[in-house]
């Protein structure tokens, strides 16, 4: 029977093998201790392989995965966050924050007008708090726009 735990266990084993393989690639230095810098990572990899094997052999009950729609929303939220991460520096604080907060709000509450207001309000409100109450060095707008 194919269960989430079995798939996850296999992924864990493969990742641990890759981790151990790259542990063998660590360059050693002439200044070394009896254990060296490879043993601890290899030990961790072995533990992870054991855990993965147990998950494959003795899986828990099947996970309740969300519906395709909810999954799509989570994927969309993730893309939003990635976009936000890239745009925060070049575009300044206000614009990306309003857009990202609005999208997230819409994904959570599902109300369009509320989401627009939440985005604008959070962007302006947090900017004031961060910049003036907490004194963080945030840039409001992209450089050279004004």
């Amino acid at each position: 029977m194919l269960r989430t735990d079995r798939i996850f266990g296999v992924v864990v084993i493969l990742a641990a093998l890759a981790y151990i393989a790259s542990a063998f690639q660590i360059r050693t230095s002439f200044l070394s201790d009896p254990m060296g810098s490879k043993s601890f990572p290899i030990l961790l990899g072995v533990i992870a392989i054991l855990c993965g094997a147990i998950m494959v052999l003795k899986p828990d009950d099947e996970v309740e995965w969300p519906s395709a729609g909810a999954f799509l929303k989570i994927a969309f939220a993730t893309v939003t966050m990635i976009g936000y991460a890239y745009s925060l520096k070049p575009l300044g604080f206000l614009l990306p924050t309003a857009v990202a907060a609005g999208i997230l709000s819409y994904l959570i509450a599902g109300r369009a007008l509320f989401a627009v207001l939440a985005g604008l309000g959070l962007s302006a409100g947090l900017f004031l708090v961060f910049k003036y109450a907490l004194g963080l060095g945030l840039v409001a707008f992209p450089k050279g726009l004004f």
């Binding site: 924050t97 990202a100 907060a101 997230l104 819409y106």
Partner: peptide, 11 residues
């Protein structure tokens, strides 16, 4: 409302 709180947490 969570629609305001959680985006705030994220930001």
């Amino acid at each position: 409302p969570p629609g305001l709180l959680l985006p705030g947490v994220m930001m």
